[in-house]
Design a protein around this nucleic acid. Structure first.
Lengths: 303, 303
DNA sequence: TTCATTGTTCGGCTGAGTCGAACAATTCAA
DNA sequence: TTGAATTGTTCGACTCAGCCGAACAATGAA
């Protein structure tokens, strides 16, 4: 399909029944309009207009050609107009991915607000711990903790989580409340070990410029946050995890915070999204929503 | 619908899944392909591809856009291909116009050959004495006697008709056969008068360089060829008309030619057709057919 | 690691496509 | 009938939209 410009000119002439009028509407010189039509006629190998110097009328061929071409061209016009119009709207499909813990504690509880604001948006939420290949899986936004920086994606940092320690009131009543990190050595710690590393993770506690490392002895260790939490709630010992995970239980009084002045800085909450020049409106809207949700929930927002 | 070239490039990239491959197929530089896609994305205000530097995949938006645009673009391709293909073929519609006398005597008797040669052609034949406005009435070819030259149309001259004189055998047996134009004064002439002029037309007879004019007395005059012919066949008198009109009756012996050495040169048979740069294949075919039909039938072909 | 390939950016260049004037033909108004 | 205005066409000259090609960073294969 060469000669598309010529085709448009032809259709304009056909509609207006005049080369001059078409030239005016299209903002072209009459000579250009004349040339366009001639080029198209030469390409098709048939006359499209009967020109009698003063009056122009479509050939039988030209009439049929114009009729069918007009449908297709206006179809293209409509298509582009439709997509341009929709470009700014928050509608269509949005596929987001995040870890289960983030979803359950930070995002899903307030997701209703987002859905209410954008009723035309079909939302799909994938929960998975592993880092996704956004392009391959068709994911628009992935929310993760401290994602490895990947230049193929753009990312937005919402703030940093912290590790906090807590234990059940019953445990503390029985074994006492630690006043200083060193006291932890005398407590039953619910350690966490990474399935890959195999070795329990030591405790690092920070207070201002002070930084104390307490070795995890591994007497009791879990590789799953839910398991650790259950133990802590059951009064087995002192458990450290992300603040946002423990917060509900702290609020309900089922757990009490231990060493509240000390904390370990955790990873940042980061949203990854495709790195094109322009993000889609749904993506922009979702990132804005996350700002509103995660901003208050996370300490140490930044950069 | 600006950005049609860009759209084509986009569709090619979408189909091949690669900017480089599209560039090769389209014969463009990779940079051009990249630019085209970017331009289109900017125009639509949305990303069409997820580019991960090594792998390219369509956005959800891009997929829908490509799907719908591909239909329309290939529709245009097919349309143009169809018309180009048909351009050379003698098919479609052909609207010809001619006078009744030419039609009945010269053209229609052999029209079957033309229709047999071009079975895909829908032919429409208008019979009318008046000169048509080809463009206004959608007539492709008009066959006329000595048409006034009109620069808006192209015309082809097929040859010249002559006036000949004839009478029935019965008339000649009773009143004798003229040997010289001057003898006509003593005969019953079936004069012809033009409805406009009102006055019977004098007889002009030519034989080599000799030219004799015989006045029409108007004792018996008709303004209609059929009426004149009927009179002649009925033995009323001597009648002059176009050779091709009288020829069948001469051949059957119902009329005998009078003064066979003398004749009056008549008008040329001319085909008018729209003056565009290129005539349609049906028009060309019909003109060629007329050549074959009128060439032998007319004397004094020329110019 | 090296090597080939991908998509992108940028500067320079050129020819495709535009304009405008001149022209012939025609219509409209006077 | 005459003149003015308008139509579609031709042609020459110009210019800038669009292309290329080189350089670059990122990536995957060997």
């Amino acid at each position: 399909m060469k000669h598309f410009v010529e085709l448009q000119t032809f259709l304009c002439v056909a509609e207006l029944g005049s080369f001059s009028a078409a030239a005016r509407r299209l903002g072209l010189a009459r000579s250009t309009v004349s040339m366009h039509v001639q080029t198209l006629e030469a390409a098709l190998g048939m006359a499209l207009f009967n020109r009698s110097t003063r009056h122009v009328s479509l050939t039988a061929d030209g009439e049929r050609y114009a009729e069918r071409a007009a449908v297709l061209v206006s179809g293209l016009d409509d298509l582009s107009a439709e997509f341009s119009r929709r470009a700014g709207r928050v509608a269509g499909h949005l596929h987001v991915q995040m870890t289960e813990s983030i979803a359950n504690t930070l995002v899903l509880p307030r997701m209703a607000e987002f859905l209410r604001d954008y009723p035309d948006l079909a939302l799909r939420i994938s929960l998975s711990e592993r880092a996704p290949d956004l392009a391959a899986e068709g994911i628009d936004v992935a929310l993760r903790l401290s994602a490895a920086k990947d230049s193929a994606y753009r990312y937005r940092r919402f703030g940093q989580v912290s590790f906090v320690m807590a234990a059940s009131p019953a445990y503390l009543a029985r074994f006492g409340t630690p006043k200083h990190p060193n006291d932890l050595l005398r407590h039953r710690m619910i350690d966490f070990f990474d399935a890959d590393a195999g070795k329990p993770i030591d405790y690092v506690l920070v207070k201002g410029r002070e930084k104390i490392t307490v070795a995890a002895d591994g007497d009791l260790a879990v590789d799953n946050a839910r398991a650790g939490l259950s133990c802590a709630l059951a009064g087995v010992g002192i458990y450290e995890d992300f603040d946002f995970l423990l917060r509900p239980h702290l609020a309900e009084g089922k757990l009490l915070r231990v060493l509240p002045d000390w904390l370990r800085p955790g990873p940042a909450v980061v949203a990854l999204y495709p790195g094109g020049r322009q993000s889609s409106a749904p993506v922009r809207a979702f990132l804005k929503f996350l700002d509103g949700v995660l901003g208050p929930a996370l300490q140490n927002r930044g950069v």
